[in-house]
Amino acid sequence: MALSLAISPCPNDTFVFHALVHGQVPGAPPVEVTYADVDVTNTAAERGAFDLVKVSYAALPWLLDDYHLLPCGGALGRGCGPLVLTQPDRYRPDRDHADREQADHDDGGRADGARADRADLTGATVAVPGDRTTAYLLFRLWSAGRPPARIEVVPFHEIMPGVAAGRYDAGLVIHEARFTYPRHGLTALVDLGEWWEADTGLPIPLGAILARRGAVDPEAAAEWIRESVRRAWADPAASREYVLAHAQEMEPDVVDRHIGLYVNEFTADLGEAGFAAVEALLGRAADAGLVPQTSSSRATAWTS
């Protein structure tokens, strides 16, 4: 019987799951794969639609009764957080941060506003890729639980063009947008991953892999995924055609940078730091009243 799998078409997912999807993992069942943006898979997981599914870590509090969190295959790391983008000079950081940015610029660092962790977006219209995405949860934590007056959920590929055209005052973006936003004439007002890492010292938990309870053995599923990751790293060229076919017209250079950033040691195993990051994200969000309370054992004991 085939295993139903839902992942995004992004290069990190197709790179990681290439061997599993193509029947190259010994002992793994055949796989029927669905490709969808994470906002779609978050909703589908609530219906129990897939045996294995990629979701946002922010969605876990609504899903752990029906799914196991697997310790591998997802997206978690450093220097890979969501960005808040605006048109140049549309919003400015407070004076203290403007001074620090100038100091960074004088030292040869970035001076594009990406460290403006107290920039004021009150009253702005902000386009976000989903209301249960980790990106949006980080945005709400950054803004102290008081997001701008108007939030619009927008398909990811429409956010940067919409901000550039003035339809939205700002846009919350993820993934390859880290590499491509200057092409749209936009500037990074804040790097939420940079803010999170500075505040917690932990990596950023973005996307999780879940196994549906009663449908698939989580220990076996974790080993299948780890073997798929090992094969991807051992022979990156093997998945090249498959990855590019689903990369939504990304240039090969952007694809390579995307994989290099989001497929890392946490993809093979979350480890102590990875699980600590998940606990910190969900704990802070629950304390702020943004998500339901989730016990740390429920969130991280994937074999329970």
Rank of each mutant, 00 (worst) to 15 (best):
M1Q: 12
S4C: 08
L5Q: 07
L5K: 02
L5W: 00
A6P: 01
I7G: 08
S8G: 15
T14G: 08
F17H: 02
H18N: 01
H22N: 15
A28P: 01
P29L: 10
V38G: 09
D39I: 08
D39W: 14
T43A: 15
A45K: 10
A45P: 12
L52E: 00
V53E: 06
P61W: 07
W62L: 15
D65G: 15
H68G: 06
C72M: 12
C72Y: 05
L76C: 10
R78K: 14
L85Q: 11
L85G: 03
T86G: 02
T86S: 08
R92F: 13
R92V: 09
R95Y: 11
D96H: 11
Q102H: 10
D104M: 15
D106I: 12
D107F: 15
G109N: 09
G109P: 11
A114N: 14
A114I: 03
R115Y: 14
D117N: 12
D120W: 12
T122G: 14
G123F: 07
A124C: 13
G130A: 09
G130K: 03
R132I: 04
R132P: 02
T134Y: 06
R140V: 06
L141V: 09
W142I: 05
A144H: 12
G145Q: 07
A149G: 15
R150F: 09
I151T: 15
V154I: 15
F156P: 00
A165Y: 01
A165S: 11
A165F: 00
R167P: 00
Y168Q: 01
G171V: 06
G171P: 04
L172S: 00
L172F: 01
L172V: 03
V173I: 11
H175M: 06
H175W: 07
E176Y: 11
T180L: 14
T180D: 08
T180G: 01
R183N: 01
T187K: 09
T187A: 15
D191L: 08
G193W: 05
G193F: 05
G193A: 13
E194D: 15
T200F: 02
L202I: 01
L202C: 02
P203G: 09
P203R: 07
L206Y: 12
L206P: 03
A208Y: 10
I209L: 13
A215W: 00
A215S: 10
A215T: 02
V216G: 04
V216A: 04
D217P: 05
E219Q: 08
E219R: 09
I225W: 00
R226Y: 00
S228L: 01
W233P: 04
A234Y: 07
P236A: 05
P236H: 04
R240F: 00
E241F: 00
A245V: 00
Q248M: 10
E249S: 09
D253F: 03
V254Y: 02
D256A: 14
I259W: 08
G260M: 13
Y262N: 13
V263G: 07
V263M: 09
E265L: 13
L270K: 03
G271H: 10
E272K: 07
F275S: 10
F275G: 02
V278I: 15
A280H: 03
L281Y: 03
L282Y: 04
G283P: 02
A285R: 07
A286R: 05
A288F: 06
G289H: 11
G289V: 10
L290Q: 14
L290R: 01
V291D: 06
T294H: 09
S295N: 13
S296H: 03
A299E: 03
T300E: 08
